[in-house]
Design a protein around this nucleic acid. Structure first.
Length: 286
DNA sequence: CACGAGACCTGTTCGC
DNA sequence: TGCGAACAGGTCTCGT
């Protein structure tokens, strides 16, 4: 489900609902924030949603702790409690709600964290792929992640050197979280279209100027996603507007917004890739 | 080591 | 209408 812009939107709303910028046409994704709330009770409704520590320790360690800050690293949501951090990965179908603890538990709710003021945080995850960790050091879980896309240290040259080292399709490489953190299937397709690169282009054949353009395209695409509060598709994740501005993602057979050519679909790495065959021609190998 | 296929899950949509 | 196949914002693990 959520990629970086959706996770960022959720994180901002958990931090402070007023942080959410409103854009034209974008639905407001409002919910009460949780910073400053004290944990009173925890109930784990599906034990496999908990990655670490064991269930008994998890349930015992949380009550009494306070949510001091909410942050994001890649697609991970970080609830900072002090020495401890709750890490949440929503994977394909996870979502979070903040609501009164008198509300009915919903289908597919996996974890409920109750606060002393009568509110609670609910982790709902239809497909059960999502995971929650309680750790002292987030590096033990997220240590392998590549740089954040907006990290100033990340340059086109860095990206070029990474891409150049592999013959795998560039689409594949963008989904590799150890290369750059936070990009998923939607935003990789959108960024590749913006950069004019065919998704199957072997990383090895990408030139430095193309890597520069790709990094710019990634940043612009993610920025637009965040500005529109992320993308809401089907029943998963509510409140975003970016789905109404896709250039290629899930637009097979529809016209390219740039040239009008019909968008095509290709399966790469067992994932759908959507692209414009005219704007995104394969790099020539000379 | 790098890479691809399969596994993990439930729900919706599409074709016959 | 029914029913199976294909597909869905992700990432591990296990072969080769």
């Amino acid at each position: 489900m959520p990629e970086l812009p959706e996770v960022e939107t959720i994180v901002r709303s958990l931090r402070n609902p007023l942080d959410l910028p409103t854009t034209d046409g974008a639905a407001v994704y409002a919910r009460p924030g949780i910073v400053g709330r004290h944990i009173r009770s925890v109930s784990l409704l599906w034990s496999r949603s908990l990655a670490e520590p064991g269930e008994a320790e998890f349930l015992q360690r949380l009550p009494g702790q306070t949510v001091k800050a909410v942050e994001r690293r890649g697609k991970f949501i970080l609830l900072r409690l002090g020495a401890d951090t709750i890490m949440i990965h929503l994977r394909m179908s996870g979502d979070l709600r903040v609501e009164g603890d008198d509300m009915p538990v919903q289908k597919h709710d996996r974890l409920l964290i109750g606060f002393t003021d009568g509110m609670r945080l609910a982790f709902n995850d239809t497909r059960k792929f999502g995971r929650v960790w309680l750790v002292r050091d987030i590096q033990s879980v997220a240590g392998g992640l590549g740089p954040e896309p907006f990290d100033e240290q990340l340059t086109g040259l860095f990206l070029y050197e990474k891409l150049h080292r592999s013959s795998r399709p560039v689409k594949n490489l963008l989904l590799d979280q150890t290369l750059i953190a936070g990009i998923g299937n939607i935003y990789s397709d959108e960024a590749l279209h913006r950069a004019g690169l065919h998704p199957a282009t072997p990383g090895r054949t990408i030139r430095p100027d193309q890597a520069d353009r790709l990094l710019t395209a990634i940043r612009e695409t993610l920025e637009e996603g965040i500005r529109r509060n992320g993308a809401s598709i089907d029943w998963v994740y509510r409140g975003g507007d970016f789905q109404n501005h896709f250039r290629v993602y899930q637009r097979t057979g529809q016209p390219c917004p740039v040239c009008g050519t019909k968008i095509e679909r290709l399966v790469i790495n067992q994932r759908s890739s959507h692209f414009c065959p005219k704007c995104q021609k394969m790099v020539k190998i000379s």
